[in-house]
Every structure is written in structure tokens, then in C-alpha cells.
């Protein structure tokens, strides 16, 4: 008889051999996220004299496979803000459906006539991102926060490291290399925002979505756009959903080796 209680009711060592504890204990250290799995590509955004235009395509890729073609990656938070996410889709869904929903509901408890503005949402998100990076368990996203704040257009980004950055023209992912140079032609600095009309901004962002579709192999031709405007001190968010790219021209492809018809 074994007098140790933890051995009671277990197969006897002298009959069945000692219990192999390695079945219970993992042989590897606990691993956090090492890479994103299902991903979304660029988010593009540009300020104009009465607000911000932000857009992201509707594709969620599984590696190089175009896995989900109707994944919206923009979310309205409260009345003043739209957040766009690139990177891991499940992390995005946690942020959009759980964290931000919770934030907005708890803000409504106060019922004091105040609402979260873009700056507050951005501050919250960047703190969450930095906190998770410090736990070595980052949320694998780049987030763009667009909105209307204190009588001015607001646009800023944060990423999986919790880095914060703001500029009148921003893009994440592939767009950081391809779209930002195009947007900076329209809007080189903060001063030039005042000269950009709503139509011009929409046109510039549409153009970027088109160029990104030409050159980014993880992108698609269907996208979602939101325009946050604050004209006459009234904040309004206009949504354009399931927009298809217009007037594509693949002429440029002919001259590129390995892109379209081969030229030796």
C-alpha cells in the first residue's frame, strides 16, 4: 500500500511502471504569437481641409492564399472616429469586437454628454499595443486612427510595438512604401492640408488603392472607404462599402519582366 495520497487510485508503479509525467508537462517553453496567420494588407488614409479619408481593401489572406474576400477592416468607434487595421485578422477582431466595444459601452455609463474623440481612442489603442508588446505577446497589427478632434482632422498610427506616429498622409503595410510617396505629392506637410478638398483627397486615396492592387500580391480590387468630416462643427462619417476599383489600366505591365506577357 502506498501511503501517499497522490498515488491513490492510480495504476501501481510496480505493475505498470512509473507514470510518464512528460505527457502532462509541455516539453517546450510557452510560446506567444511569433507571426501573423490570417492577414490584411495596407490601410491608406489622408487628411483634407474638412476631415480625413481612410480606406482598406476587403481581403483577408492566409499566407499567399486569398482566403476571405469580404473582410471589412475599418471600424467606427463612437461618433468621431474610424479605426483601420492591417496585419493579423484575429487580433484585429479582438480589438474591434471586444476591446473597443467594451471601451465605448463603458464610456456611455457616465451619460454626461461627453463622447470619446479620435485622440482618446488613439491613446487607448496605443497603450494596449505597447502593453502587449511588453508582455512579449503583441497584437500583430498596424492601426490607423482617423477622426475629427477638437475642430481639426486627426490621423495617427500605432503598431505592434506600441510606436506612435502622426502625419497628414499615412499608410500601413505595403502602402507605407507604395502609397505614402503618392499621397505626399498631394500633401507634403501639415500646412498643405488646408488646400486639399474632400474630392481631391478621395481621388488620391482611390488612386493609391488602385496602385496597391497593381503591385501588392496580397491585395484585392474591392475595398471599403470611410470619410470622417467635421464641417459646420457637426461630425459626420460617410461610408462607401464594397467599392470596386474603377478605370484600371494594366498597360504598364507589358514593360515589366515577370509581370504579364513576357518580353525577352
Amino acid at each position: 500500500m502506498n501511503h501517499l495520497p497522490e498515488a491513490w487510485g492510480r495504476p501501481r508503479d510496480d505493475v505498470y511502471g512509473a507514470y510518464d509525467h512528460s505527457h502532462l508537462r509541455p516539453s517546450m517553453p510557452n510560446q506567444h504569437t511569433q507571426e501573423p496567420i490570417v492577414t490584411g494588407t495596407s490601410v491608406v488614409a489622408l487628411k483634407y481641409n474638412g476631415g480625413v479619408v481612410i480606406a482598406a481593401d476587403n481581403l483577408a489572406s492566409y499566407g499567399s492564399l486569398a482566403r476571405f474576400s469580404n473582410m471589412e477592416r475599418l471600424k467606427q468607434v463612437g461618433t468621431h472616429t474610424v479605426v483601420g487595421a492591417s496585419g493579423d485578422i484575429s487580433d484585429m477582431q479582438y480589438l474591434f469586437d471586444t476591446a473597443l466595444e467594451d471601451l465605448v459601452i463603458k464610456e456611455e455609463y457616465q451619460n454626461d454628454g461627453h463622447h470619446l474623440r479620435a485622440k482618446h481612442v488613439y491613446s487607448y489603442l496605443s497603450r494596449v499595443m505597447y502593453h502587449r508588446r511588453n508582455k512579449f505577446d503583441p497584437l500583430w497589427n498596424v492601426l490607423l486612427v482617423a477622426g475629427w478632434d477638437d475642430g481639426k482632422p486627426f490621423l495617427a498610427s500605432t503598431d505592434l510595438l506600441g510606436t506612435t506616429f502622426s502625419a497628414p498622409a499615412l499608410a500601413s503595410g505595403f502602402g507605407a512604401s507604395l502609397a505614402v510617396p503618392l499621397l505626399r505629392r498631394v500633401c507634403p506637410d501639415e500646412e498643405s492640408v488646408a488646400k486639399i478638398s474632400r474630392e481631391r483627397a478621395i481621388e488620391a486615396v482611390e488612386e493609391c488603392m488602385k496602385v496597391l492592387f497593381y503591385r501588392d500580391a496580397r491585395s484585392t480590387n474591392k475595398y471599403t472607404m470611410a470619410i470622417v468630416s467635421g464641417e459646420d462643427n457637426k461630425v459626420d462619417i460617410e461610408w462607401k462599402k464594397d467599392v470596386e476599383l474603377q478605370k484600371q489600366s494594366w498597360k504598364f505591365a507589358e514593360e515589366i519582366r515577370g509581370y504579364g506577357a513576357q518580353i525577352v
Partner: peptide, 12 residues
């Protein structure tokens, strides 16, 4: 509020 919030966390 806690009940409503925990319901959201559990059942989305």
C-alpha cells in the same frame, strides 16, 4: 453592468 459585460465577453 458586470453581468452584461461578462456576457459579452463569453458569448460575443
Amino acid at each position: 453592468r458586470n453581468e452584461a459585460s461578462s456576457w459579452r465577453k463569453q458569448y460575443h
